[in-house]
Design a protein around this nucleic acid. Structure first.
Lengths: 136, 136
DNA sequence: TTCTTGACCTGGACTCCGTCCATCGTAGGA
DNA sequence: TCCTACGATGGACGGAGTCCAGGTCAAGAA
């Protein structure tokens, strides 16, 4: 994830200890943490970091396209650092576990012209729901 | 929508004026209101109705499968009475307008077995995003 | 029609998630 | 090393949703 910091620096970002720590927490490809979880883990590495800073940093990473925001259930949003590899999500309806998945096919092509109502459609988000092995 | 009330009565529900009014507000197939909007419209017909009652009633309708919950953007959930006709949603990223759409194909079949990680997958939710004609 | 009772409604307090803002601190260029 | 604009802080705030104790009423029984 240090290349994330490099990319951010390249975009004119100041690299502060807070941003470094948030990036470190998000390291790894299969992480789907809430802002509060990110804050808790970051505070473990840098105790004085504030909630507002975590929210700001996550928001900036999202608007730069480095991190994806996932709204799973209308409760807290989750942050997914695997933003450079297109994927969808499979969520356990019981315990909330999230997995990245790669469906075949192209859902964008599945929306016929006459069902677009003049919209310029640019993205599709597919969420699969079901029960994970341990909740079955 | 009076058949909704009939179905609910058939399930042992008491039909109260509050529930009648909520059902009436949700009447129509292309409505996607937030709980607060439902409350505002319901209060127009029955001024003393409380927010808690609207939330309770909507929650019950959802758990009976009579109404669908749509989490568009991590903000307020929306309630969609068109629950008996499978469909997906097309949302304007700018103004939030929602349309019901019917993609061809079956996205459930697009998730290969080896991408299911042992989950019992039961539903798929597809959300298309883009700009509506008036926001383009 | 009246009675009875448990399901339902109410309003206000509370929680959770997220944003805003005034002020202070500091990364990094000169 | 110094300067300063960008970033961090934390506390107040706001929106969405939940909870609860107590009052109300739909609908079946008589």
């Amino acid at each position: 994830m240090s290349d994330l910091l490099e990319r951010l620096r390249g975009r004119g970002w100041r690299v502060t200890s807070q941003r470094r720590v948030v990036a470190e927490v998000l390291d790894g490809d299969h992480v789907h943490l809430t802002a509060d979880e990110v804050h808790a883990r970051a505070a473990h590495l840098l105790p004085e970091i504030s909630r507002a800073t975590v929210y700001n940093t996550l928001g900036e990473m999202v608007s730069l396209g480095e991190v994806m925001e996932v709204s799973t259930d209308g409760r807290a949003k989750r942050y997914d650092p695997n933003a450079h590899h297109p994927h969808q999500h499979l969520i356990c309806s019981n315990c909330g576990t999230i997995r990245d998945v790669h469906p075949s096919g192209n859902p964008l092509a599945d929306l016929p012209q006459e069902e677009r109502f003049g919209f310029t459609v640019s993205e599709v988000e597919v969420t699969y729901r079901g029960l994970c092995p341990s909740c079955t």
